[in-house]
């Protein structure tokens, strides 16, 4: 089974994030960048499927040259090769631009399955799997917490608030996975040392035949008008125990619809 995993480099979750005027793009220069944590689940699932059914895992990443470190982590975890889509024209792309660039890259790859993380921790749109499925005209299954491949078809569980819905699907397909579908492995030392020897190809938009007018800030269908920081967190509520504390905590939790 040939699998492509789409990954993104994002700003470290713990870093203090800054949005820069005039177009409110995230300042990625002044902080550490890492492999999108949700993508680790996608990479892990792809590597497990490969280990069970054979084939190869290709990492596909759109981003600046510097995003190679995120790609290398995916390779260290067990992916076999990588394709980077790097082009200055891509800066400021929204979901459509990203989907066009990635689908352009996918057109040149052989795959049975495309796996993504549920969303990136920075933009958090979660739209990319659907956008890719639309452009590629493939079935899309999102928010999966279980994937099984048997007799040429895929059985998956789609996570919902109440439980899960089971789906069956033929290949090829586009899937996104949630945190908890697996426990991503720590890259092995062998994997880390070997990651650099794995093939890593970089292509720009011209090579992929993607129209530069439809990507980047210029081609974006959406525009960020302004941003506002969330209001500061309110101080917590202290309950002194005068004998009724337990009752008041229960009432509080019930009031918040937690219990």
């Amino acid at each position: 089974m040939e699998i492509v995993v789409c990954v993104k480099q994002v700003v470290d979750t713990e870093a203090e994030k800054k949005l820069l005027a005039p177009d409110w793009r995230l300042d990625r220069q002044s902080v550490e960048n890492v492999l999108n944590p949700y993508d680790e689940y996608a990479v892990e699932e792809a590597v497990r499927l490969k280990e069970a059914h054979g084939g190869e895992v290709t990492v596909l990443c759109m981003g600046p040259e510097d995003a190679q470190s995120a790609v290398r982590k995916a390779l260290a975890m067990g992916a076999d090769r990588a394709l980077m889509v790097t082009d200055p024209a891509l800066a400021g792309s929204d979901t459509q631009g990203t989907a066009l660039a990635l689908s352009g890259a996918l057109a040149g790859l052989t795959y049975d399955l495309v796996i993504l993380g549920i969303m990136s921790t920075d933009a958090q749109t979660g739209q990319l799997p659907s956008a890719l499925g639309d452009i590629l005209d493939l079935p899309v299954l999102t928010a999966l917490n279980m994937m099984k491949f048997e007799d040429g078809s895929l059985t998956v569980h789609r996570q919902t608030d109440q439980g899960y819905v089971a789906y069956g699907c033929g290949l090829p397909a586009v899937c996104s996975v949630v945190k908890g579908i697996n426990e991503p492995r720590y890259p092995s030392l062998k994997g880390i040392m070997g990651a650099k020897k794995k093939p890593l190809e970089t292509k720009d938009l011209a090579e992929l035949g993607v129209d530069t007018a439809r990507v980047g800030g210029a081609g974006a269908l959406t525009k960020v008008l302004s941003t506002t920081a969330p209001p500061p967190r309110k101080a917590g509520q202290k309950i002194e125990d005068d004998g009724t504390a337990a009752q008041r905590i229960v009432e509080f939790l019930a009031g918040e619809k937690i219990i």
């Binding site: 290398r72 890259p187 030392l189 880390i192 040392m193």
Partner: peptide, 22 residues
């Protein structure tokens, strides 16, 4: 021969993850 600065960085970064998270 394989201990390039890049590789050493990568090794220590991943070990840092093991130390911090595990």
């Amino acid at each position: 021969e394989e201990a390039t600065p890049d590789q050493i960085d990568f090794v220590l970064e991943e070990l840092a993850g093991v130390c911090q998270e595990l």
